[in-house]
Design a protein around this nucleic acid. Structure first.
Lengths: 197, 197
DNA sequence: TGACGAATCGGACCGTGGTCCGTTTACGTT
DNA sequence: AACGTAAACGGACCACGGTCCGATTCGTCA
C-alpha cells in the first residue's frame, strides 16, 4: 500500500502522514461504497484532511486512483521486464505478448472501477499516466520483433492496447456480459494474428 | 442539420423551434470557441432558452453532441448498408472492412472533439449510442464472413472498434502527432491480419 | 372565441471536481 | 531555545453538469 514519494527533496512529516491517511481512507470508502459513489469531499473528510490537501497531493481524481493502483502496476511492470518467461524475457514475442495481455486483463478484472477512474477524470488521463507509455513501448518492441522492420510497430502497439482501456473492458464485462476467459481468448487471437508476417 | 423528432406523438411547435435554436447555437459556439470550451449554460443562453429546456431536449452533453453528429453518422450508415462497394455490399469482407474503417476515420477526423464529447459525458456513453451497436453488428458480420464459424466474431468486432473511440483517435492524432493516413494504414493492416484464417 | 388540460418552459437550486489564499506548522540555522 | 522561511494546510469559493417545480403556453374541443 505504500507509494514512493514523488519528491525531489524529502517530504515533510505531516505531508507523508496525510498522504497515508488519504490513501487508507480512499481505499476503505471505495471498498465500502464502490468507487463511483465516493466523492472527493467524502475522502477528504474521512481522512480528516482539508480538500485542498487531497488535491495538492494527488492532482485530481485520476491521480488518486492511479496512486492506489501503483503497487499492482509496478508489480506487473517488474514481471514483464525481469520476470520469468513467457511474461518476462526469453519467450518468443507472440507468447510474451499473449502473456502480457493476460496479465493486464487480470489486473483490469481485479480493479476495473479503479482503472476506469484513473483513466476518466480529465479527458486523456489514460495516456498521460507514464504507465501507458511503458506498456506501449513493451508491446511496440514485441511487434517489431515479430513483424520485422516493414510494419508500423509504433502504431500497431497503440491499436492493440486500445481494447484494454478501462472503459472498454468494463463494457465487455458488464454490458456485454462476456466472461474473462472469452475476452482473453479474443485478445490473444487478435494479437497472434497481428504478429503474423 | 435537422434531426428527426424522437417523439411518438407530433412535437409541439415551441418545442421544435427551441430544438432548432439550440442546435444552431451549439454549432456556432462550438465552431467559434472549440467544443471543450463551451458550457451548457452558454449554449442555453445563446439559444435564448432555459437550461432545463436544453437538458430536457437532449438528455445530457453527450446527447447534444450526438444530435449534432446525427446527420453525418446517418450518411455513413446508409452508405455501408446500401452504398456502392467496397463500402456497401458486394465487395469481399476484407475490402469492406477496410473501407468502413477508412470512412469512420474520415468522420472522426472531421469532428474529433464532437465525437469525444458524444462519448465522454456520462461514463459509458459511447456504448449506449445505438450507433455503436450498428457499427458493431456490421463489423461482426464481416469478421464472421471472413473467418468462418470458428472465430469469436462478436468479441473480435468489439476489439477492432476499440481504437476508433474518439479519445483514442485524438490521442494518436494530437498527442502522438500521427498523420491520418498513417493511422488508416495501421488500422487496415490490423484489420486485414485479423480477418486471415 | 373561450376555456381547459397537457406539454413545455425557465430560473433557482444542488452536488461535484477543482482552485485560491490567508493561516499554521515543520525544521534547519544560529 | 528562539527564529525565519519554505512547505503544507484547510475551508471558503468557483464553474459546471444536471434536476426540480411553479409558471406559462400550445392546441384542442366545445
Amino acid at each position: 500500500m505504500s507509494t514512493r514519494p514523488p519528491a525531489p527533496r524529502a517530504e515533510r512529516a505531516d505531508a507523508a502522514r496525510n498522504r497515508e491517511r488519504i490513501l487508507q481512507a480512499a481505499e476503505r470508502l471505495f471498498a465500502e461504497r464502490g468507487v463511483e459513489a465516493v466523492s472527493m469531499d467524502a475522502i477528504a473528510e474521512a481522512a480528516g484532511v482539508g480538500k485542498a490537501t487531497l488535491f495538492r497531493r494527488f492532482g485530481d481524481r485520476a491521480g488518486l486512483a492511479l496512486a492506489l493502483l501503483d503497487a499492482r502496476e509496478r508489480d506487473l511492470q517488474g514481471l514483464m521486464l525481469r520476470g520469468d518467461p513467457p511474461l518476462g524475457p526469453g519467450a518468443p514475442a507472440e507468447e510474451r505478448l499473449v502473456a502480457f495481455i493476460g496479465a493486464l486483463v487480470d489486473l483490469l478484472e481485479a480493479h476495473t472501477d479503479l482503472v476506469v477512474a484513473s483513466e476518466t477524470a480529465p479527458p486523456g488521463a489514460r495516456y498521460r499516466s507514464g504507465l501507458y507509455a511503458t506498456y506501449h513501448m513493451h508491446v511496440r518492441l514485441l511487434v517489431a520483433e515479430a513483424r520485422g522492420p516493414g510494419a508500423d510497430a509504433d502504431a500497431l502497439a497503440e491499436l492493440l492496447l486500445a481494447p484494454l482501456a478501462g472503459e472498454h473492458y468494463r463494457h465487455l464485462r458488464r454490458e456485454r456480459g462476456m466472461p474473462v476467459e472469452r475476452i482473453k481468448a479474443a485478445l490473444a487471437d487478435l494479437a497472434r494474428h497481428a504478429l503474423r508476417r
